[in-house]
Design a binder for these strands. Structure first.
Lengths: 103, 103
DNA sequence: TTCATATGCAACCTCCTAGTTGCATTATAG
DNA sequence: CTATAATGCAACTAGGAGGTTGCATATGAA
């Protein structure tokens, strides 16, 4: 459910950069993920919330700071959705080909 | 390239519905893809343009009407990008595990 | 030719989103 | 205890995205 929200969350260069960082490095604090993006901490925080709402990331309070971690299931759902589309598309192509060959 | 644009194009319920229709049925005209979406033809046309700009769909003039066709390579790029992310994520997990085990 | 159909183009409106600033809060460090 | 560091919350602004209406254009059918 909420597939559009999922893709929408990925459809922003800054959020995608965040996901990149998270997939590369260790889980880190909000401050760390937000640094060096060219926007303020609050701006970055909003992006993180979008990612969290879309279940691409989850936030875990840890004393004074909040750890940001990638949620693999989010990415998986997105990929699965695309695969389903491609499957239908392929079936359609096959049906079309049969139609052309056999009459 | 322009991966964010790709996801962004998929991140809208109406555009996703269009892609669904195109993957299901035969390539059809702009009018056909645009019908029954709850918005005007011009509104739908703008969505189609977004999909076309993101290379998810291509438009082919055919006399009076314009055929809309799914571009499988667009979906493939999106899927590939996600797979790459997951690959890096998995590698990171492995490294972490080795670190925990071996010291 | 004439009429209807499928589309293009442009101006306009509204609202959400990205981004900011300022201040409050909570927890770690000395 | 005090100071600082990491974060939360709220109000505000600007710009773009989604959507509409109105009109122009070109192609196919009769």
């Amino acid at each position: 459910m909420a597939v559009p929200e999922l893709f929408r969350a990925l459809g922003d260069p800054i959020r995608l950069e965040m996901v990149q960082r998270l997939s590369d490095g260790a889980p880190c604090t909000i401050g760390a993920v937000s640094a060096g993006l060219g926007i303020t901490r609050q701006g970055a925080r909003k992006h993180l919330q979008v990612l969290a709402d879309a279940k691409i990331v989850f936030l875990e309070a840890h004393g004074r700071d909040v750890l940001v971690q990638l949620d693999p299931s989010g990415l998986d759902r997105a990929k699965q959705y695309i695969s389903d589309l491609q499957l239908r598309w392929d079936r359609r192509l096959e049906a079309l080909q049969r139609y052309l060959e056999d009459g």
